[in-house]
Simulated scan of single mutants.
Amino acid sequence: MLRLLLGNIEPGTSDEELGEFLAKYGFPAWDEIEHVPGDGSRPAVMLSFGDISAKSLEKLSERIHHMFWKGRELNAMIIGQYMP
């Protein structure tokens, strides 16, 4: 399972909004989501994808890395394999 850390999302962004945004750029549905609030100024989510290759996830993440969404510049970083 691969994980993607999507940082600097707008506080209060719902999972549904996030899913619609990612689907618009070709992402499959995630298997797990973990909200990472930090200090609240730059919230993030950790998304786990089980049915995608590392190469495909890398190409998709490049589409949204540094993109402005809801007034914020997103940061997308592949964290790697995750074995629950």
Rank of each mutant, 00 (worst) to 15 (best):
M1N: 07
L2W: 15
R3M: 14
R3H: 02
L6R: 04
G7K: 12
G7S: 15
N8M: 04
N8G: 05
N8L: 02
I9D: 11
I9L: 15
I9Y: 12
I9W: 10
G12K: 11
G12D: 13
G12N: 14
G12E: 15
T13I: 14
S14W: 13
S14D: 13
D15V: 13
E16C: 07
E17G: 07
L18E: 10
L18A: 09
G19I: 00
G19W: 03
G19S: 14
G19Y: 05
G19R: 15
E20T: 05
E20K: 07
L22S: 00
L22P: 02
L22N: 02
A23C: 05
Y25G: 01
Y25D: 03
G26F: 12
P28W: 11
A29Q: 14
W30V: 06
W30E: 08
W30F: 13
D31T: 11
D31C: 09
E32S: 10
I33E: 05
I33W: 01
I33V: 07
E34N: 00
E34P: 00
H35D: 02
P37C: 05
P37A: 04
G38N: 05
G38A: 04
G38I: 05
D39R: 10
D39C: 09
G40T: 08
G40C: 09
S41Y: 05
R42I: 02
R42E: 10
P43S: 06
P43E: 06
V45H: 12
M46S: 15
M46G: 12
M46I: 15
M46F: 15
L47C: 11
S48T: 12
S48P: 03
F49M: 10
F49L: 08
G50Q: 09
G50Y: 02
G50T: 01
G50A: 06
D51A: 12
D51W: 08
S53L: 10
K55I: 04
K55V: 09
S56G: 06
S56V: 02
S56H: 06
L57S: 09
L57N: 06
E58V: 00
E58T: 01
L60R: 06
S61M: 03
S61V: 02
H65W: 03
M67G: 03
F68M: 00
W69M: 00
W69R: 00
G71M: 07
G71R: 00
G71E: 06
R72H: 04
E73N: 10
E73V: 07
N75Q: 10
A76R: 07
I78A: 06
I78V: 11
I79E: 11
I79T: 13
G80Y: 03
G80W: 06
Q81T: 06
Q81L: 08
Y82C: 11
M83G: 08
M83D: 13
M83Y: 13
P84T: 08
